[in-house]
């Protein structure tokens, strides 16, 4: 697993794609931070931080999909998947190695936004607890997005299809809160609990870490990786 992890992580640093995604995320986060979170009027520091995490969650989700779409689909396209399948590694170890590489790279990008928030502290008062909670939420959303992308990449035969499939899964989970409004219990309760952002991320934006929210993102991550592992195992049969 460590070997696969190392190769994949180095791959992000060596490929133009890795740097383009990192630059784009930081640029867009910076724009949204200055244009909307800080804004032109007077705002409380907590409001700025709240809005930063709100906008940053979106860029993190998209970056998670873009970084993970290549994980398996690219190997399939260039024919190198055979190297992994014939190696003395379990499918699960390969999945974890690839997942953690994409997640660590995205986590580094996410943590690179920290100086923007530290600027807030120059003119206001920043609660460290709020920061820790917000970044915990962002890292959890990053893990879940990368896991969804990993699953899509394991299923699809090429990267474009993987990106579309990953986006479809993510948007479906995001829209669960809307569907919850137009359905009756217990379906509405279930859909509300499945909601990727509305139900589970708002607490992090406000500086609160709740066990059910953490459990939700970890569950999405685990289930997606588990299914991806199953898909890889099935590919050995055809």
């Amino acid at each position: 697993m460590i070997t696969v992890f190392g190769r994949e992580l180095r791959g992000y640093f060596r490929s133009p794609m890795g740097w383009v995604i990192a630059a784009a995320v930081l640029f867009i986060d910076g724009l949204l931070f200055n244009g909307f979170a800080v804004g032109s009027g007077k705002r409380l520091s907590s409001e700025v931080v709240h809005d930063f995490f709100y906008f940053s969650s979106g860029t993190t989700m998209i970056a998670g999909l873009l970084l993970s779409m290549r994980l398996f689909a690219e190997e399939l396209q260039v024919g190198t998947q055979v190297l992994l399948r014939t190696a003395p590694l379990s499918d699960w170890a390969v999945i974890l190695g690839k997942f953690f590489a994409a997640f660590v790279y995205l986590a580094l990008i996410t943590l690179a936004t920290l100086p923007m928030l530290l600027l807030v502290d120059l003119h206001g008062q920043l609660g460290p607890g709020h920061l820790v909670a917000g970044y915990t939420g962002l890292l959890l959303i990053a893990a879940a997005s990368v896991a969804i992308g990993t699953l899509a990449s394991a299923v699809a035969d090429n990267q474009v299809v993987a990106a579309i499939l990953g986006a479809a899964i993510l948007v479906s989970l995001l829209l669960c809160w809307l569907l919850a409004r137009v359905t009756e219990p217990p379906i509405s309760d279930l859909l509300s609990h499945l909601s990727f952002f509305d139900k589970h991320f708002t607490a992090f934006m406000e500086g609160e870490v709740r066990t059910p929210d953490v459990a939700y993102y970890l569950s999405v991550t685990w289930v997606c990786l588990l299914i991806a592992s199953g898909v890889q195992r099935m590919r050995r049969w055809r």
């Binding site: 791959g11 060596r14 190198t80 998947q81």
Partner: peptide, 9 residues
């Protein structure tokens, strides 16, 4: 395999 699996980078 018939098609040599390589990482060009």
């Amino acid at each position: 395999p018939d098609r040599v699996p390589l990482y060009p980078d």
